[in-house]
């Protein structure tokens, strides 16, 4: 983590995305604001349905135009360009070339009927002016960059001949082939085994330092966040509820949800073995049935009357100066929930 942060390369402000559904218009994410700085990894964490994937797809404008609506106040400022309301033509010059994305499912993200080399070549020919042999050479370089063994041979193989980890490497190679300034990784390791996950995480870490790429990592796995992220943004039911550096989030969580989430992960060590886990009772509210007040109030252990009736704003909390969306944020330095009992 750099001590002195560079100017943000991407500023998302008041991003609100709604969907037209059979049950009327549902707002999936509301008022999301995040800053992405070069050379840093921003983690977006939350449970399923919290809107973390919608956020990333809104930034990439990958949502179906027929059913999704970005509110007019939404701003996604990238290099003087507002991605939220720019033309599709402008978007095409950004997407893939300057902001790239990798997805959760390495099995379905590659087209099974074309070779790996063909698919890399396609991406390169769309975004660069390289000659055919130049593109081939670049493809090999990219595969070498993502530490693929025997890259020359791999180019002529089909996706089904590769394992899940290999495919995710190819996806990363494709995403990086135009040296994007931002890489959005939507649950890149969820479908992979732990040992492969470790490989991919290490690779992403290396690439970040080598290419100074900004990474937005979307995940539900707090362990992954703790290991690779610099900054974290916690989401709940379509709202950003807490932002901070990874240390702040893990050591001094201020939102009761963040704290409860951290506590509910099984810990290792003899002292914790077989103990009941602290839980968050209940379920995430449905988007078509949101409560009037704080969206976490029904499950919160310290909720008060005002939490049920008024939704808190995301405001800098006096204690730490970090934005938290809570009326009564946790004020004391809790013993680092994540590291307790860790060997």
């Amino acid at each position: 983590m750099s001590a002195q942060r560079n100017a943000p390369i991407l500023q998302v402000q008041n991003l609100t995305t709604s969907f037209r559904t059979d049950d009327g218009i549902l707002t999936a994410i509301e008022d999301v604001s995040i800053d992405v700085h070069p050379g840093e990894t921003l983690g977006i964490v939350g449970e399923s349905g919290c809107g973390k994937s919608v956020t990333s797809k809104s930034i990439m404008r990958l949502l179906p135009t027929a059913t999704s609506i970005l509110s007019p106040e939404s701003k996604i400022m990238f290099d003087e360009l507002n991605l939220a309301h720019c033309s599709e033509k402008d978007m095409r010059s950004v997407r893939g070339a300057r902001i790239a994305m990798i997805f959760q499912e390495p099995m379905t993200s590659l087209n099974p009927v074309f070779t790996v080399g063909w698919q890399l070549d396609e991406a390169l020919s769309y975004h660069t002016d390289l000659s055919k042999s130049g593109r081939r050479q670049r493809s090999v370089e990219m595969l070498r960059l993502v530490e693929m063994p025997n890259p020359e041979e791999r180019l002529d193989e089909y996706p089904h001949q590769l394992s899940g980890g290999m495919r995710q490497r190819v996806m990363i190679a494709m995403a990086l082939c135009c040296e994007p300034e931002i890489l959005i990784a939507d649950e890149p390791t969820t479908a992979l085994d732990v040992t492969i996950q470790a490989q991919i995480l290490k690779l992403m870490e290396d690439l970040k330092t080598r290419l100074n790429t900004a990474i937005i990592l979307i995940t539900h796995d707090l362990g992954v966040v703790a290991q690779v992220c610099d900054h974290v943004c916690v989401m709940y039911a379509g709202r950003v509820i807490e932002k901070g550096t990874v240390r702040e989030i893990f050591h001094t969580p201020q939102h009761p949800y963040t704290r409860a989430l951290l506590e509910s992960i099984p810990k290792s060590g003899r002292r914790e073995h077989g103990k009941r886990l602290p839980t968050i009772e209940g379920v995430v509210p449905a988007l078509n049935n949101l409560p009037p007040g704080c969206r976490f109030a029904a499950r919160c252990s310290i909720a008060e009357d005002q939490c049920i009736h008024n939704e808190p704003d995301l405001k800098d909390h006096a204690f730490s100066g970090r934005p938290v969306r809570c009326h009564i944020p946790i004020n004391q330095t809790t013993a680092a929930a994540g590291s307790k009992g860790q060997a």
């Binding site: 040992t195 470790a198 290490k202 992220c229």
Partner: peptide
């Protein structure tokens, strides 16, 4: 040991090198 080492730990202060096994199953 590799499995244990590859499991990311929930502590940003304990960022050890994850044990990375080469190759696939």
């Amino acid at each position: 040991k590799a499995l244990l080492g590859a499991n990311p730990i929930n502590d940003p202060d304990d960022r050890r090198e994850l044990t990375v096994l080469e190759g696939d199953v």
